[in-house]
Amino acid sequence: MQRLLNSTTAQYQAGAWIGLQRGWRWSQSGVEFNESESEWFVGQPDNRDNQEYCVRMKDGTWDDDTCTIRYNFICYDENKTFHIINSEKTWLEAQSYCREHHTDLISGVKQLKDFKRQHQDNNGQSQNNGQSQNNAGQSQNNAGQSQNNGQSKNNAGQSQNNGQSKNNAGQSQNNGQSQNNGQSQNNGQSQNNGQSQNNGQSQNNGQSNNNAGQSQNIAGPFWIGLFRDSWNWSDGSSFSFRSWEKNETNAKKTCAMTTSDGKWRADDCDETKPFFCYNDSVILIKENMTWVDALYYCRAHHHDLVSITNLDEQRWVQERAKMASTQHLWLGLRYTCTLDFWFWVTDETVCYTNWGPGQPGDDCTTAGAMNRQGTWVKKHDDHQLNFICFK
């Protein structure tokens, strides 16, 4: 940070970009937001009164809204199914509900397109597991010709029941197997409120009301999994250090820059300025390998498995560990039974350590790993984990 301050004051009096930005994120982990694919309504997002940080969808387009307003919402399951939840909740309540009962709030343009396609197909076909068609008062069910546990087929007032059938002046009362609300009346109409069920009642009076597979209203508004995040670093790290100018509160400017005195200020992202780059000396490999395979991979593609010799390196590596897809990840730390000590594969002496409680012990088949919180643990070397390489 001191090097950045020196560079700012000496060379870039007008300021320069740094990799800190406030922008939109999807709720589901791993789904990236791409502004070019967004479906904003005209004039949106507008962040009215600087309080609209969550996104709802209405008629297929998006607009930002206050997160505490209650709307119905759409959940996503990992098996690529979607659930319209007709229970109005705040955005955070909706997110918690979806994560508890499904996977997450619907996230990403691809999921939204799949959701629309799925429901358009349902609307076009109106598929019911017993679709009801009416031709001149005749009730036919494609799933089995109005099967009412007694196969009641009613054609122009005539009732044929394989079970119990009584015909009085064209009226058929079925109090047994073929229950049509206790009575099947055929006066040019067929009312099937019993076993010929389309998710409840199928009333056919010259029209078809289909409740099983009935097309749901997808116009909305619904909460979706898009929200405006607080400031975050472009490389995904979560360093909490901030150096804002006093009273820096401009919510409409979403990229950070340095100022002549080394402080930070928000500005419009489409402005052109000089910028700072940095070289990261470590890289997280999100592939699952044994410790030995990870060692060979790092040496073949980069430099070596990472070693940590001081607190600064620990902080840098543990930021990468937070983004791992496994609970632990390999370090270049190994135990030797012959000499009875831990060593780094890069030949550095193990001076700095960050072992967890009860660690490390002396097991001949163990290597050093780090959890996502940065604590070191010993693991049998045949576990398959992510790992971090030196570049």
Rank of each mutant, 00 (worst) to 15 (best):
T272S: 14
K263P: 07
D280G: 08
W291K: 06
A251P: 03
K252Y: 12
A300H: 03
Q314M: 10
W231H: 06
C269E: 10
G236M: 05
G236D: 12
G262P: 09
Q318G: 01
T249E: 11
M323V: 06
W264E: 09
W264K: 03
L295M: 10
C255F: 04
Y297L: 00
W316E: 15
R320F: 09
G236V: 03
A251W: 02
W233H: 03
D304N: 11
A266Q: 08
D267R: 06
I283N: 06
V292H: 05
Y296H: 13
R315Y: 11
D268S: 11
S234Y: 01
D268F: 11
V292Q: 15
V292G: 05
A294D: 10
N250Q: 13
E313R: 08
D268P: 00
Q314I: 01
V306L: 07
M323H: 07
N279V: 08
S240D: 14
D280M: 02
D229G: 05
R320W: 12
E287F: 06
S260V: 12
K246C: 06
T309H: 04
N250S: 09
A324P: 02
T272V: 14
Q318Y: 04
H301I: 11
F241N: 07
S281W: 14
R320M: 14
D229M: 01
S234N: 09
V306S: 04
Y297N: 10
N250K: 07
H302Q: 13
A256W: 02
A266R: 10
S307V: 07
N310I: 01
S325T: 14
A266W: 03
K252P: 03
S234C: 09
I283S: 07
W291C: 02
I285T: 08
W291L: 03
T290N: 11
C277V: 14
M289Q: 15
L305K: 01
K263T: 14
H301P: 01
R242K: 10
E319R: 02
Y278F: 15
T290H: 04
T258H: 00
E319H: 04
E245A: 04
D304I: 02
A321E: 12
H303V: 14
T272W: 03
K273C: 06
W264N: 00
K263D: 11
S281Q: 15
H302T: 05
C298L: 05
W264D: 09
D280E: 15
S243A: 08
W231A: 09
M289N: 14
A324K: 05
H302A: 07
Q314N: 10
R320K: 12
A300C: 02
M289L: 15
K322M: 06
A294Q: 04
Q318C: 12
L311A: 10
E287P: 02
H303G: 08
T309I: 14
T258G: 05
I285G: 03
V292M: 08
A251M: 05
N247D: 14
Y297W: 06
M289K: 15
M289G: 09
G236K: 00
D293P: 04
S240N: 09
M257I: 13
H303M: 13
S234K: 07
R315A: 10
